[in-house]
């Protein structure tokens, strides 16, 4: 056990305790957390900074507002209902079709309007927010998945998680929804995490739960060797996340839309550590490399060049 500990240390693997003590608490000022914990605020600052995000159809703030929901989505057959404070993908409802008054979930299940209302009502009363505080609910554009991921995703939309440290992307992974994750790209819920070579945007092996895998569990397609389109653009979006939030250590979730390209979905001030298993690389080693050069006022282009040179999978 001690040798396992030593080997993990040598490979620069970051543990939860160290992540919390040395990265989150030292580099992420507490008063900045609301910016990323509230997805609505995140969206606002991202739009203000001219970054691409999924279009917001409307916001429901009170139980009474639920009546506005049908009008809000009247022009959209596809939309996403998302609690502003939901964590870990909780409370996100993806609607991909409509027939009459009934809506179809991404899983294919049909929902009545009353089901939808109840979901929104629960979310408003804080079912999905930390500490059960009353929440706001946003209704937004449903991302149309880029066809490149079709062979390796089950129902939902894959997203790309990039961990950024002081403006330097340090590690990234592609998160693929599975049947187990109910079409959500959330690793806790059973989505597959696939390591991505930071310099080229090509996928390497993956992980489901804590176990390394090579094929998508539902489609049986190989998950390594995929080339993610618009990789430069994705890295640029991620690289700017620190400056707009004031957070030093942040997880940026980007989705790739068929027509609109990379969109920032949300930011995370406490990004998980499974990205290390997906990439077979330790985060700490990279974070320490960046720590040595961060804060010198390097331009975004220089920062990206730096990480592409240093953090290539080889």
């Amino acid at each position: 056990m001690l040798s396992l500990r030593r080997r993990l240390n040598e490979r620069g693997v970051l543990g939860l305790n160290r992540r919390n003590a040395e990265y989150i608490s030292l580099h992420n000022p507490r008063r900045r957390f609301p910016l990323v914990d509230d997805k609505l605020l995140t969206k606002e600052i991202a739009i203000a900074a001219g970054m691409a995000v999924p279009e917001l159809y409307g916001v429901l703030e009170r139980q009474h507002d639920i009546h506005d929901l049908p009008a809000m989505v009247a022009d959209h057959k596809q939309f996403v209902i998302k609690p502003a404070h939901g964590s870990g993908g909780n409370g996100i409802l993806v609607i991909t079709g409509r027939r009459g008054a009934r809506h179809q979930k991404s899983s294919g299940e049909w929902l009545e309007q009353s089901d939808l209302d109840h979901h929104v009502s629960s979310a408003l009363s804080g079912l999905y927010s930390l500490g059960g505080r009353p929440d706001r609910v946003m209704v937004e554009y449903c991302v149309d998945c880029d066809p490149v991921f079709e062979s390796v995703s089950y129902q939902g939309v894959p997203d790309i998680r990039v961990i950024v440290f002081h403006g330097y992307p340090v590690m990234s992974m592609l998160r693929l929804p599975t049947r187990a994750s109910d079409g959500k790209a959330n690793l806790h819920q059973g989505a597959v995490g696939v390591g991505v070579d930071l310099s080229t945007g090509t996928t390497v092996g993956g992980v489901q739960g804590n176990d390394p895998i090579q094929e998508h569990p539902d489609t049986d397609q190989p998950i390594a060797g995929l080339s993610i389109p618009c990789w430069d653009h994705i890295l640029e979006l991620a690289g700017r996340a620190c400056e707009i939030t004031g957070l030093g250590y942040v997880g940026v979730d980007v989705v790739l839309d068929r027509t609109r390209g990379p969109l920032i979905l949300e930011l995370n001030a406490r990004p998980g550590l499974n990205i290390q298993i997906a990439n077979r690389r330790g985060l700490r080693a990279r974070l320490e490399t960046v720590h040595g050069v961060a804060g010198r006022g390097a331009s975004l282009a220089d920062r990206l060049r730096f990480v592409r040179e240093r953090f290539a999978h080889g």
Binding site: L8, L16, N17, I277
Partner: peptide, 19 residues
Amino acid sequence: LGRYSGYRLLELRRFRALA
């Protein structure tokens, strides 16, 4: 313990693939 930044025991199992 509040400043303990070592691996948790169960993390050793979780990250064993990385070792």
